[in-house]
Amino acid sequence: MTHRASHPNLLVLPAVAWLVVFMLIPCLMVLFYAFLTRGIYGGVDYIFTFENLARVFDPLYAKIFLTSARIAGLATLLAILIAYPAAYAICLAPKKWQPVLLFFAVLPFWSNYLIRTYAWIVLLNREGLVNNLLKSLGYTGEPLSLLYSEGAVITGLVYNYLPFVILAIYSSLSRLNPELLEASRDLGANALTTFWRVTLRLTMPGIAAGGVFIFVLSIGNFVTPAVLGGGRFQMIGNVVYDQFLTANDWPFGAALGMALIVIMIVLLLLQARLTAHFAGERREANDGA
């Protein structure tokens, strides 16, 4: 096979070309547009300015960024709290059942994102399943306003991205050497202390990977806040959407988009640092597993 040594370099060419054409160049265009002036009927005029970037830090938009970060943060926290026990339970199941359980965990993912989000309207509206259930159980007389709220948006985000978080945490948990947990018990730690000091600590890379994933996708999301938030409050994704399609201010939309990309890159770098920090430990954790 030595005469084929140069092939691997050629084999990545299609992927690299794809990334350059559909990822790198559009990103550079967004970056470029962020420094231009808006055209009167949409589009851009090629007049260089820092004004768009300065507007990103306007308290009005800073507040929307913070709201988005809060919603994404809560969704992340909730998703991890749900995904961790689920992933743990899958890991404890007999080996032959684990792929089946993972399949079911990921199953909702195979349906359309928009349909899955609209389904929550059916569940949460005033005449929806949840309200009817609560009423029939006598918990509430008046139907609750569940839909078009921050809670509904967070629910939608958690629901949509949970499978990824479960997968990320599962992959981390399943690579944990069970003898480490036994060693902890053997040295006098009970099950809870063992979980806290060994299991959780060593599965941090999985939590970080799943967490960054849902956070990044949530903070820039515009479908879920539009559908389940009912336009009552805005996340930064909606503002970007509006700038391009309603306000016809492409340069400002591009500047906001750049800010989102920067947040994403910073988080991914942090996650990579964390994973590298744990890399040696993970290798060790695999010994004899």
Binding site: E179, L180, A183
Partner: peptide
């Protein structure tokens, strides 16, 4: 954890 004896694991099981 309640037994006053200890095990040295084959994989050593050192906390990484």
């Amino acid at each position: 954890e309640k037994r006053p004896l200890n095990l040295m694991f084959q994989s050593y099981a050192l906390f990484p």
